[in-house]
Nucleic acid binder design. Structure first.
Lengths: 231, 231
DNA sequence: GAGTGGTCTAGACCACACA
DNA sequence: GTGTGGTCTAGACCACTCT
C-alpha cells in the first residue's frame, strides 16, 4: 500500500506553488480531480486542503469556473475574545477588579441606536475597572438590556465583573465588534491614571441572542495596550 | 430514501442546544457516533459540524475525553485585510494616493528587532498618504527589506502604493498584526490634517516569506476611523 | 489497553454558474 | 445542457490521551 496523503501536506504543497508562482495570480489551477490523481489521493482530501486555503483568502473557488489564485487577495486574520480576567492573567499579571458604578439609566441615544432599541428605553449601566498588577488595565463601560437577560436582578457586579457574569449566564449568538482610538477626557484620565488627552484603544462590542440585543460595551484600555491578531 | 442531512443543519441544531442550555457549559455532549445515529447521517457529517463549532470556540474537543461546552469560551472573530485602495472604494469614496518620501535609510532599532534583522541593516523607507475623497485616510509608514524583495529597485511608488505593489509582487506566507492607539505628533498631525494630540488608530503589520522578513508597516489612520470585525 | 476524535477512501449525487 | 466545486455515505484505520 502507498502511504496515505494528508490534506495538510496538500495544503502545504499548494501554498508552496502559490508562493513560488508556479500558480500565478490570476491563474486557474488544476481541477480537484486532476490534483487528486497527481497526489495519489481521494478528491475529498484535495478538496479539504483547497477549501482551507480559500477560507484564508489565498484561493478563490467558484463552481463551474474552477479555482484561481486571486489578483488582489483579501487575507483573513483572526483574534480571540477571552474574558478580561484571563487576558490579564495570560499576560502574567495579578488581576484586580473594582466596580465603579451600577444604575438603571437612560443611555445616550447612540447606544440605543446601536442596539436597535426604541428611544427612551432604560438600561442597566455598569462601569468597572479591570486592573493588572494594581495598575489600571481597562475600563469597562457597559449597557445591558434587562428585558433580554433573565436573572440580571440577582447578579452582583461588586465581585464578579459583568464581562464574566454575562459570558457564563447568557447564551449569545452574534457579536459585533469595532475598534477605534479615543482621546482620554478628564474622567477617563482619572480612572485610567493617565494624562488627559492620552490616546486610548477602545474595543466596542454589541452582543445579541438571535435578534434580541443583550449588551453594548466599550472596553477602554489604558495607554500602551496592544491587540495582537494572527493569520 | 430519507433526505440527506446537511452539516449546516447539524451545526445549527448543536448551536441551538448550546444556546438553549440543553448542553450546559461544562457538560460533555454525546459522541459523534451517537449524534450521527440520532440525526440519521454519517459520522463524518456530524464531525464537520462539530469541528466548525470548535473552530469558532463554542466547543472544546479532545480525543478520548470527548466534546464539551467550555465554561469560559474564547470566541474567535475575523477581519479582512484588503489593499487600502479597495477599502477606501468599498466605503464609497474616491481613492487618492500621494508618495511623501522614499529613501534607503537606517531604521529605528525597534523596527529591526521586529523584523529580526541585525543591527545597522539599511532598509527602504516608504512614506505615503492614502486619501478618501480628497481627505487624508491613512498614512502608510513602511520599511522594506530589499534583500528579500527581488525587483524592488524597479518599483515606482509614485503611482502605485507599496501596499499594492507588494501584494501583487511578493508571495508572503505569514503576517503578524497588532493594533494600538497613538497620539498625533506634529508631523502626523500635518500629514493627516488633524489637531496635534488627536487619538489615531494604528495597524502595525509585519510580513514574512517563510522565515525571511519582507516588510514592516504602520498604517496610521485619520481620526474617526473604525475597524469592524465579524464573528 | 481502550476509547474518543481525526482523517482518508471510493463512489455517488447535488447545486450552482456558465454557455 | 454541462462542467465544476460542494457534500454525503459507509467503512476503515490512525493518533492522541486517559486509566
Amino acid at each position: 500500500m502507498a502511504p496515505t496523503v494528508s490534506w495538510q501536506s496538500i495544503q502545504a504543497e499548494a501554498l508552496r506553488r502559490i508562493q513560488a508562482r508556479d500558480w500565478k495570480p490570476g491563474d486557474t489551477i488544476p481541477h480537484e480531480s486532476v490534483l487528486a490523481e497527481e497526489f495519489g489521493c481521494a478528491r475529498a482530501t484535495v478538496h479539504r486542503a483547497l477549501r482551507k486555503l480559500a477560507e484564508a483568502g489565498l484561493l478563490e473557488r467558484r463552481r463551474k469556473s474552477g479555482t484561481r489564485v486571486p489578483l488582489n487577495p483579501v487575507y483573513k486574520a483572526t483574534f480571540e475574545i477571552a474574558i478580561i480576567r484571563k487576558e490579564v492573567e495570560a499576560g502574567g499579571h495579578a488581576y484586580g477588579y473594582r466596580l465603579i458604578e451600577t444604575a438603571q439609566a437612560l443611555p445616550p441615544p447612540e447606544i440605543l441606536t446601536l442596539l436597535r432599541l426604541p428611544a427612551r428605553t432604560r438600561l442597566l449601566h455598569v462601569v468597572a475597572l479591570h486592573e493588572a498588577s494594581g495598575s489600571p488595565f481597562c475600563l469597562e463601560d457597559r449597557w445591558i438590556n434587562p428585558g433580554a437577560v433573565p436573572g440580571l436582578e440577582l447578579a452582583d457586579f461588586r465581585e464578579l465583573s459583568a464581562n464574566e457574569w454575562l459570558v457564563q449566564n447568557v447564551a449569545l449568538s452574534r457579536i459585533g465588534i469595532e475598534f477605534f482610538a479615543l482621546a482620554a477626557d478628564a474622567g477617563l484620565a482619572a480612572h485610567l491614571q493617565c494624562p488627559q488627552g492620552s490616546a486610548l484603544f477602545v474595543i466596542e462590542r454589541t452582543t445579541w441572542a438571535g435578534s434580541m440585543p443583550i449588551t453594548a460595551v466599550q472596553l477602554i484600555h489604558a495607554p500602551g495596550y496592544r491587540l495582537t491578531a494572527a493569520t
